[in-house]
């Protein structure tokens, strides 16, 4: 069964009717409803195209959080071979909200990491809905330091509502872990490329996305705060999340214009959730292209280039 978003209701109705007609036709071969069903479906496709060409910022947030969207492990399984997950921060625990390990990407040994949200109730709980605790970031630091030692490119897949706001996480230094993870990204003498595949939630995202190249899927979002959080602080009303999403300029297109992301990866019509393998394949090509742009750069070039990239941010304003 497909999950529809509330603004896709019209499409769901048309597709549902078409489905019903076809079901009736199967039971009663004398009914000639094929043409009508086709017509309904093409109208639905048209609506989908129009809708997805003009998604509002808030609608994009909903698409980015869509439960059927491919998640980090889907990308890793499809794009990498010999994926060997590595676990634990060597201090306290293994955090299942951040996955990562050694793998091979198009014949090249790499370190891959990502925020994993889980795909059903059980795995979502196990993955803490993609909200990492300090241990997750400390594992990421460990993997980055290993990548640095062996000159392995690092690929990170970003998809998190944010770092986990919990008592234990705070006590064990959530802020420090995030700061150190960002520091580790900046210190890397190997290339690091990031793709925001869904939600880029604030500091919890930046900790893994301080990269030489950053890409975003077309309907992914990346923001300093969730629209709900922003609305409740600035509008004093969490219901104003649509306005907040709009004001925050958190879409891939706006971030490209601001010079924060380098490329936007086109999603299949109707979003990555409607054709997961196509979305994943295009992401693979984008990762390969970003890595090849960095080929041949020395360790110090990579480090200096990364610093320069972030130092230059903030010189472009939106029109």
């Amino acid at each position: 069964m497909r999950n529809y978003l509330d603004f896709e209701k019209g499409i769901a109705e048309l597709q549902g009717k078409a489905e019903e007609l076809r079901a009736m036709a199967r039971q009663n071969p004398n009914l000639k409803v094929e043409a009508e069903a086709d017509q309904l479906e093409s109208r639905a496709a048209e609506m989908l195209r129009d809708l997805y060409h003009g998604l509002s910022a808030w609608q994009k947030c909903q698409v980015a959080r869509h439960p059927d969207r491919p998640h980090a492990l889907d990308f890793i399984r499809a794009l990498f071979t010999e994926y060997t997950p590595l676990a634990g921060d060597r201090n306290f625990a293994e955090d299942h909200a951040i996955v990562g390990g050694l793998a091979r990407f198009r014949d090249r040994p790499v370190v891959v990491m990502g925020n994993e949200k889980g795909h059903d109730t059980q795995t979502r709980l196990e993955r803490n809905f993609g909200m990492a605790r300090p241990e997750g970031y400390r594992k990421a630091i460990r993997l980055m330091q290993m990548a640095d030692r062996f000159q392995l490119p690092v690929i990170t897949l970003i998809d998190t509502p944010g770092a986990y706001p919990g008592k234990g996480a705070e006590e064990r230094g959530q802020a420090e872990a995030i700061a150190r993870s960002t520091e580790a990204c900046l210190a890397l003498r190997a290339p690091i490329v990031s793709v925001v595949i869904g939600e880029g939630g604030s500091g919890g995202a930046v900790a893994l996305a301080t990269a030489n190249r950053i890409a975003m899927l077309e309907h992914a979002v990346y923001s300093v705060i969730s629209p709900e959080g922003c609305a409740s602080i600035l509008w004093k009303n969490a219901e104003k999340m649509k306005e907040a999403a709009q004001a925050l300029r958190l879409t891939a297109q706006d971030l490209k214009a601001l010079g924060v992301v380098d490329r936007v990866i086109e999603e299949p019509l109707g979003g990555a959730q409607r054709d997961r393998s196509l979305a994943i394949a295009r992401t693979g090509d984008a990762i390969a292209a970003m890595l090849s742009e960095l080929d041949g750069q020395s360790a110090s070039d990579l480090k200096a280039g990364r610093r320069r990239k972030f130092l230059q941010m903030g010189t472009k304003a939106l029109a």
């Binding site: 301080t210 300093v224 903030g314």
Partner: peptide, 22 residues
């Protein structure tokens, strides 16, 4: 915390300030 009115650019001050420290 961050200056929300500067959106993603305020978030980008986390890496930028980390560069200053480095």
């Amino acid at each position: 915390g961050a200056r929300m009115q500067e959106g993603i650019l305020s978030l980008m001050q986390m890496p930028r300030s980390t560069i200053a420290v480095a």
